[in-house]
């Protein structure tokens, strides 16, 4: 082979090419024989290959430490809001872009643990993130989530909010979500975790999910959920397992909220995460009125108009808020 670069550099380029080629998943006898032919061409080839190999083995031995170092070096650079990463999402019915041009604030980690990347959404913001392993996470409005990947584990902490996880299969690196006092553990599946003031709920669309207390000593049982199951744990630790249509739970991702006999106060709490203008229900009895139906999240005025067709309510502006009253 004719080389126009300096001999040593050219030899190193060939050695690197061989080392990379021998990493193929289906490396064969033919690769081995061609490799031996190249190696036998000159002692410079042998020397270059030994050098490349020494470096390769050094990175192997130091892999974990290098990953930690890289994460530490990256942290200051991430402490900047990057509007370019925002995602426009179109709602089901009207096709309005609700959260156009949103910025996600990527916050520096407050924890001293190795490689943590944090994401946060505000009111009305939805965000899709693709993790290094190919897993995809959709964040609902007002959600805080942090991600920490290492060689042997994929860890996510859902401090507050709701997210749908579409987890890439990797049996060697368990994927866990810590939320409230529980750990949700999966291999490869799709599920929704909601960790809001009213409690924790996990809904599974595909695969199996293990939910257990984070600390062995803590109260609460372990559950193995399969597709179509939802586990709810309220703040008092009361558990409720039910069969659901996961697509209803997942509907917020496509700009719809689906409710079955949900108290109006909870529906309003959800809406107040989706829109900057806030709605208030001051009458507690009205707040307990059950809501059943699909709410398309196009704009707040339309949502309230549709709500008042479903329920005996009317709305009046009150300062910066919108007050819902009995008709």
């Amino acid at each position: 082979m004719i080389s126009i670069v300096s001999d040593e550099e050219g030899t190193m380029a060939n050695a690197s090419a061989w080392l990379a080629r021998l990493q193929r998943d289906d490396v064969s006898e033919a690769d081995a024989i061609e490799f031996e032919t190249w190696l036998a061409e000159s002692s410079a080839n042998v020397g270059a290959y030994r050098r490349a190999l020494a470096l390769w083995h050094e990175y192997e031995a130091a892999a974990e430490a290098v990953l930690v170092e890289l994460a530490a070096a990256n942290r200051p650079a991430r402490a900047v809001a990057r509007p370019g990463l925002s995602r426009r999402w179109l709602v089901g019915g009207g096709g309005f872009a609700v959260a156009a041009g949103l910025a996600i604030a990527v916050m520096p980690s407050l924890l001293a643990v190795p490689t943590i990347q944090s994401y946060a959404t505000g009111k009305g913001q939805h965000q899709r993130i693709t993790l290094a392993d190919g897993s995809v996470v959709d964040l609902d409005a007002e959600t805080k989530l942090s991600v920490s990947f290492s060689r042997s584990a994929r860890r996510v902490t859902l401090a507050d909010g709701e997210a749908i996880f579409d987890v890439a299969h990797d049996a060697g690196r368990p994927f866990t979500v810590a939320a409230s006092n529980h750990v949700v553990r999966v291999v490869g599946t799709q599920f929704d975790v909601r960790n809001r003031h009213d409690g924790l709920s996990v809904t599974v669309a595909r695969g199996k999910v293990d939910v257990r207390p984070a600390k062995a000593a803590a109260s609460g049982r372990a559950f193995l959920l399969t597709a179509g199951q939802r586990l709810e744990i309220d703040r008092t630790g009361l558990e409720r397992l039910s069969a659901v249509d996961p697509q209803e739970t997942f509907s917020w991702r496509s700009g719809r909220l689906v409710y079955r006999a949900e108290p109006l106060a909870n529906v309003v709490a959800d809406l107040n995460r989706q829109f900057v203008e806030q709605i208030e229900v001051s009458d507690p009895e009205l707040g307990r009125t059950p809501v059943t139906g699909v709410i398309v999240l196009d704009d707040q005025a339309s949502v309230v108009a549709r709500l008042s067709l479903m329920l005996p309510i009317r709305s009046i502006p009150s300062g910066e808020k919108l007050l819902l009253l009995r008709k």
């Binding site: 083995h57 130091a62 430490a65 290098v66 042997s152 584990a153 368990p174 750990v183 984070a214 600390k215």
Partner: peptide
């Protein structure tokens, strides 16, 4: 799991230790 963190496994027996300064250089190069 303690507070959501897996308890770290022991390093493999054949794991070679790389000096801290060297790790720094390796990471910088990457």
């Amino acid at each position: 799991t303690v507070g959501g963190e897996d308890v770290a496994g022991e390093p493999a027996a054949d794991e070679v230790l790389v000096a801290k300064e060297r790790v720094h250089l390796l990471a910088e190069a990457v």
